[in-house]
Write a protein that binds this DNA or RNA. Structure first.
Lengths: 202, 202
DNA sequence: ATGGATACGATACATCTCGTATCGCACAAG
DNA sequence: CTTGTGCGATACGAGATGTATCGTATCCAT
């Protein structure tokens, strides 16, 4: 299986003209702008090349398809910093993290992740990339955070961190894709509160 | 905005040769078979026409694109019967319904709904169709079921039926698309139990 | 039965997109 | 200055899309 992102030949071997980082950024910016304007399906490699004022071959030298460009652009946007910031309490920190993700999904990141998720359903290589570069890093951080909460007696001891993640975060993805309602803070709070308290009447 | 499914001209006006229902079914079957074999992106209208042993124009006369065919085929597959079957208890009936959906998603329906969900991210008309013909009918049934549970004091009175749906069912869609693990009955039970009991230690 | 209207299969066609190849020039390292 | 690669431009073939058209088939109304 060939890689989605192509090797920088000039960096691996010795001589030759190096690839321009300026062009790299121009392509990523052009791709993001066009996706937000017209949607990822409506645009072609030609469109991106024209907007970036770059030859089409220059793009194909670096990425194998549209989705790979969007993936790189998306990952470059996300803050690689801490996932859970300190708050009033352990659980409040979770709520704030959920709100922060919902806020990102309401903006440009939402349009990009929607395109990537959809495209990943058709392209197994992209699906792997999305898992490795977006989904799993965040799940790993969340798992360790939830494990601490279980250990400290703040979350139920019989809860599986993976299930906790899915219950809390899957609704955000669901609403992003289905559009059954706004991805508001009020919605996030509703999901968070009900998931914490439980749905069954005690 | 033009319709995704095209009007049966022979049925609206008077005379003329009627469209063959046999051909209709042949096209739907060919589309489903090919999607399951190769994936919806890999196949073309030509492929479907060839498999159904039908002229390409005959397909375009009825549907405007691939996704519209898959949509009709998918909706024709789903049982329009009752959503929640009686079980040992009110809440057990919810669990069984979740399991039944997960089972469907493990099979052919899973591949079809994945393709439709992905395609709907690019085609607003298809997104509306998917909402109207799949998502909303089931949400409406679930809402009325959950409202009864709230009224009967089996579910928390402060819970919003929409939020309940998302907490219980979004994880199933999430795992279907992300592939973070198997869509097993054990997983469904885990989501169901934790969502019912709540995540916070009491 | 007969004529009108439409479905159907087949074919052709223009258009678009993709991915590759190639040419000439630009640019950095040795 | 030579070598090796990046870069823009152009051409090319393959494949898909959506439309158009032709001759035949089939149903309905008269």
């Amino acid at each position: 299986m060939e890689p989605v992102r192509k090797q920088t030949a000039a960096q691996t071997s010795s001589g030759g003209r190096p690839r321009s980082p300026r062009i790299h950024q121009a392509i990523l910016k052009a791709a993001v702008d066009l996706v937000l304007e017209s949607g990822s399906r409506a645009i072609s490699m030609d469109d991106i090349a024209a907007r970036a004022d770059v030859g089409r071959m220059t793009i194909y030298r670096r990425w194998c398809n549209k989705a790979a460009i969007i993936m790189d652009a998306f990952v470059a946007r996300v803050d690689p910093g801490t996932l859970f910031l300190p708050a009033r309490s352990y659980t409040e920190s979770i709520r704030l993290q959920m709100r922060s993700m919902a806020k990102a999904f309401r903006g440009k990141d939402g349009a990009l992740i929607r395109a990537l998720l959809a495209e990943a359903q058709f392209d197994p290589r992209l699906a792997v990339e999305l898992r490795d570069r977006w989904t799993m890093p965040r799940r790993k951080m969340a798992i360790s955070y939830f494990q601490r909460g279980i250990k400290d007696g703040l979350l139920r001891s019989d809860a599986d961190p993976d299930a906790i993640i899915d219950i809390l975060y899957a609704p955000i993805y669901y609403r992003l894709q289905m559009g059954t309602g706004p991805l508001s803070d009020a919605y996030v709070d509703e999901i968070f509160d009900h998931a914490m308290k439980g749905l069954r009447k005690v």
